[in-house]
Amino acid sequence: MSTWDPNIVVFACNWCSYAGADTAGVARLQHQPHFRMIRVMCSGRIQPGFVLRAFEKGADGVLVSGCHFGDCHYVFGNERAVEQFEKTRNVVRLLGLEEGRLRLEWISAAEGKRFAEVIDEFTDQVRALGPSPLAGERAGAAAHA
């Protein structure tokens, strides 16, 4: 049985998705621990370069998350985030990475449960895809460690 666990980078906005992860914490909603959270103020800040750098450095999956439409702390920042995300996805396609390694989700501050569910689901999805081809030998080495 493979013991390989993916390494996932999660970008979350301060006001909704990061807060949603905290809400999951307050409710002790258990979920898989193989993601690393990076907080920014708004999902609009998450530029293609961040996501691509994560893949370049060997992340097996990247989750971008922000407020639901109409609930953005900065009114329309999340709509900008979608446009950035589309660009990012095109590059990820060009790189030949599986699309399932990249995901965009809206999670509100109250949706701790949804945060936990999204993490579990996405982790399983990335685990099924196996190590990122860009993770190179390091991931391979880790898998056999």
Binding site: V9, K57, A139, A141
Partner: peptide, 17 residues
């Protein structure tokens, strides 16, 4: 960018052990 990049790099480097 520099601050976020530092976090990304650290996140990925650790995973690879």
């Amino acid at each position: 960018d520099r601050q976020v990049h530092a976090m990304i790099d650290a996140a990925c480097a650790v995973a690879a052990g």
